[in-house]
Structure formats: C-alpha cells, structure tokens
Simulated scan of single mutants.
Amino acid sequence: MKIRLQLFEFEDLPWFPSVVRAGMMDYLRFMISHLGIYRPIVPLLRKALQATGQHQIVELGAGAGGGTEGVARALRQLPGMEQTHVTLTDLYPQPAAWQLLARQSQGGIGYETAPVDALAVPAHLTGFRTIFSAYHHFAPSAAEAILADAVRQRAGIGIFEGAGKHWHEILLAWTILPVLQLLATLFMQPFRLSRLFFTYLVPLIPLCTIWDGTVSILRMYPPDQLLALARRADPKASFEWQVGKVKHWSGSQVTYLLGWPR
C-alpha cells in the first residue's frame, strides 16, 4: 500500500480524555509485549547499538512502553548487551504504566517524568534514540525534523512500526483485534476500574482503538518514504541509513528505518 493519508488519531488530540488514552496505550503495550511484535528487529537494533558503541536507548513517544519491554529483555540476554538500558520518554508521560515496566525489568528500564518533544530532544538525554509504533503520528515536516535533530546531535536513531502497511492489516483492526481487546482487558496490569468501565460499559477504548488502528496504517510511511525523509534530514550524508521490513512469526511485518553517524 503506497497511499499515505494524514488523518487524525484520537490519542493525538490535546482534549482527548487521558483516562481513555491510557486505556488504549495499555492495550497496545499488552498486545505488543505478549505477541512479541518487535522481536524480529532485535538483531538489527543490536547491530546499530554496536556501530555507535551505545548501551543507552532513549525511547521517544513511548506511550505505555509497549515496544520496549520485550526488546530490552532480548537485548540484555545477548553477549555484550547485558548493560543495555532504556529510558522511556513521551510528550504525554505515563509514569504509572512505566513504573510497572521499570520494576519488571530489574534495572533495564527507566523513565523521564518531564514531557519530552521528539523534535527537540534535551541534550541530557543521550543515547541511541528509538520510536516504536509512533512515527506515523508525525506529518512529513515533523517526521523529518525528528531525524534532523538526531543528525544534528549525532545520535543514532531507529524507527519501528509494527505493521507492513497492507490492506489485510486494516481488516484485522476491524475484526479480530477488537475481539482480542475485549478478552485481554481483563488481564492487563496495572488494574484500573476506569479501563473496565470505558471498555465494557461505555466502550470508548475499543471504538477509539479501532479508529486509531485503521488510521495508523493509513498514516504509516512505507520504506521508500522513510528513506526520502532521512536523506532530506541528512543532506551531507553524514549518517549510514538502512530501511526495510522484517517478518514477525505471525506472518505480519515490521517496517524499520535505522541511522547512525558514519
């Protein structure tokens, strides 16, 4: 699918109720973690970390941290990667969700409580930058600015989207995934009465998730557009860029862009 539509997602809207946004993020974290969506990119990220000599990862737009937990655990199990540490950041921080991940990670995950703008990352947040499942939220000018900021600060960066941008993924968002969400909500941690209320009694969480999931796929940048953004952000070609897709065990794909200083 080559088409890209810059539609709105509910979770991006400043007035959107934070309790519903948190419930949607909890669902994404639960599904991404339990399905191991980003496990196929671990070798790619390891290579990029080794190329930059980094053990510190700064995740931008972390949401509830869905892309991080499994990836960090898998990295720390690899030889030479035992000291890998992830700092979660977001423009809308979610420390309640991040505290759980930090405890479970046994020191592998921390977080920044202050809001962090991915377009202008504070200088004290050093490390290899990652964005999981969130790059499509940014219009082309902002998406390019994120890469340009990494180039300017000589920070490696990895962009990962848990889909391959196919029409059948939209069909899944309309059919199977809502059923899984209704089943999975009962088992999500930390426990929230608000999540149960806005899932089963007033189903704003599943309805908004269906819309945002559909729009996410339509807004995703395919590999050729990711590479074009990178080249505009790095006119002097001072970074090494890699782009492509890798398969998940379920048959779905992960789209990625990796860049680090030459």
Score class of each variant (00 low, 15 high):
92 Y>R: 14
181 Q>E: 14
45 L>W: 00
194 S>P: 01
166 H>N: 12
251 G>C: 09
70 G>K: 11
91 L>Y: 14
205 I>R: 05
238 S>Q: 14
195 R>Q: 11
62 A>I: 02
77 Q>C: 08
156 G>K: 03
36 G>D: 09
150 A>T: 05
42 V>M: 11
81 M>T: 01
22 A>F: 05
84 T>D: 02
143 A>M: 09
166 H>S: 14
72 A>I: 06
21 R>T: 00
35 L>A: 13
165 K>C: 08
206 P>H: 06
102 A>D: 09
32 I>G: 01
43 P>T: 00
81 M>H: 06
125 L>C: 07
214 T>K: 06
63 G>W: 04
82 E>W: 00
119 L>C: 15
260 W>I: 01
242 Q>P: 00
149 D>G: 07
142 A>R: 11
22 A>N: 13
253 Q>I: 03
114 A>M: 07
88 L>G: 07
256 Y>G: 01
184 A>C: 09
122 P>C: 03
12 D>T: 04
12 D>N: 12
7 L>M: 08
126 T>H: 13
16 F>D: 07
141 S>W: 00
230 A>I: 07
36 G>W: 12
254 V>S: 01
105 S>A: 15
45 L>I: 02
120 A>E: 04
26 D>M: 14
87 T>L: 13
30 F>Q: 14
119 L>A: 15
188 M>K: 15
44 L>A: 09
13 L>C: 05
200 Y>G: 05
219 R>G: 02
38 Y>H: 10
260 W>N: 05
242 Q>Y: 12
151 V>I: 13
180 L>E: 11
209 T>E: 11
109 I>V: 12
262 R>Q: 15
153 Q>I: 05
250 S>M: 07
159 I>K: 14
119 L>K: 11
256 Y>I: 03
212 D>S: 00
255 T>V: 09
105 S>N: 05
25 M>Y: 13
114 A>K: 13
52 T>V: 04
198 F>W: 13
229 L>R: 09
134 A>E: 01
259 G>W: 01
101 L>I: 06
61 G>T: 10
12 D>L: 06
224 D>Y: 13
238 S>W: 10
85 H>C: 10
104 Q>S: 12
251 G>A: 10
85 H>T: 04
250 S>G: 09
88 L>C: 10
83 Q>K: 14
206 P>C: 05
184 A>S: 14
137 H>A: 05
62 A>D: 08
235 P>V: 09
240 E>L: 13
136 H>N: 03
211 W>G: 03
17 P>N: 10
41 I>C: 10
183 L>Y: 13
40 P>L: 05
221 Y>G: 09
140 P>R: 03
111 Y>Q: 04
107 G>W: 00
101 L>E: 05
150 A>V: 03
93 P>W: 08
82 E>M: 02
44 L>G: 06
71 V>I: 03
188 M>S: 13
29 R>W: 03
108 G>R: 06
95 P>I: 02
51 A>R: 06
184 A>F: 10
